[in-house]
């Protein structure tokens, strides 16, 4: 028995030594894994806690997440309450000082930028509202750039030895990203003023950036699944205030969105929401390319 423990112990040491060269980054969502990859590339070992098809609000505090958190030097999550249902427990159980709230290794992307939908009143009868505002900030490329700058600073603080490298990566990312924003804004002109029906308010920042208007949400309250009675009300509402598109995210159930699209004869659009949800959204840039091409295609305009 003792020998087994010695062998296991030595293999851990060997493993830790091997992994020691790289900064261990725990990312909560695919968009932040993609951003860390842009800024830090192969100097980091990135663990992505959720896939593009998972709802980041509702994740189990699984043993595997605790094991990964134990070794993290840096945690990159949306924050602002998005992961409140699982992340605090995982952090506490990991016994890891680096990533405690307030430490440099605890990076909440949404807290680096201004947020929309900050509620005046926080009450659970209003559904799953986030006191600190809407945490789904990554669908506004302007905010992504602000977050990238803050994340670069954080990487340079934690891993000073690679400062120059992170700065170079950031500069390259920034140049390419600013060009991309210009292109996206140019091709997205037809979307300005378009009225949309959304499933959950997780694309607020996207529509804010593109100048699109959310007419109504399929969830009666944030986080509460659409029910038949409420969908009837949505239908009445849409008769008064027509919409041009019905939008839902790849990780959501499409049933309610499909139904309202069919009933009201409004084109339906499935958006990737995050990196990895569709074959073309393989990077942050790909995510915006793909999102815009879906929206434009649905509007009947080819990009």
């Amino acid at each position: 028995m003792l020998r087994i423990f010695i062998v296991l112990g030595l293999s851990w040491l060997a493993f830790s030594a091997h992994a020691a060269g790289k900064l261990q980054v725990f990312t909560c969502e695919p968009e932040w894994a993609a951003l860390v990859n842009e800024l830090a590339g192969d100097r980091t070992a990135i663990y992505q806690a959720t896939t593009a098809l998972q709802d980041p609000h509702h994740i189990e505090a699984r043993p595997s997440l605790i094991a990964k958190m134990r070794k993290a030097d840096l945690l990159v999550c949306s924050g602002a309450g998005l992961e409140a249902g699982w992340l605090p427990l995982v952090i506490r159980q990991s016994a890891n000082r680096n990533i405690l709230p307030g430490q440099p290794g605890h990076f909440e992307a949404a807290m680096q930028v201004s947020r929309l939908d900050v509620p005046e009143r926080v009450d659970r009868s209003l559904g799953d509202v986030h006191a600190q505002g809407n945490p789904h900030v990554h669908l506004d490329p302007r905010r992504v750039l602000q977050i990238a700058a803050a994340l670069r600073d954080r990487l340079m603080m934690i891993d000073a030895g690679n400062s120059q490298y992170y700065q170079q990566r950031y500069t390259a990312f920034e140049t390419a990203w600013r060009d991309a924003i210009k292109q996206w804004e140019a091709i997205a002109k037809p979307l300005r003023g378009v009225n949309v029906v959304v499933h959950h308010r997780d694309s607020v920042y996207l529509f804010d950036w593109l100048g699109m208007n959310i007419v109504v949400s399929l969830e009666p309250k944030p986080g509460i699944a659409p029910a038949a009675g409420y969908l009837g009300e949505v239908k009445q509402h849409l008769k008064q205030q027509p919409a041009d598109l019905v939008v839902y995210a790849a990780y959501q159930h499409s049933r309610a969105a499909r139904w309202i699209s069919r009933e009201m004869n409004i084109p339906l659009v499935k958006l990737p929401y995050t990196v990895g949800a569709t074959p073309t959204a393989t990077s942050l840039k790909g995510l915006f390319d793909d999102t815009l091409s879906h929206l434009l295609a649905a509007l009947g305009q080819s990009s």
Partner: peptide, 11 residues
């Protein structure tokens, strides 16, 4: 007193 092993799986 609990000790979490630095393994890839939870231990």
């Amino acid at each position: 007193v609990r000790w979490l092993a630095p393994t890839d799986f939870f231990l």
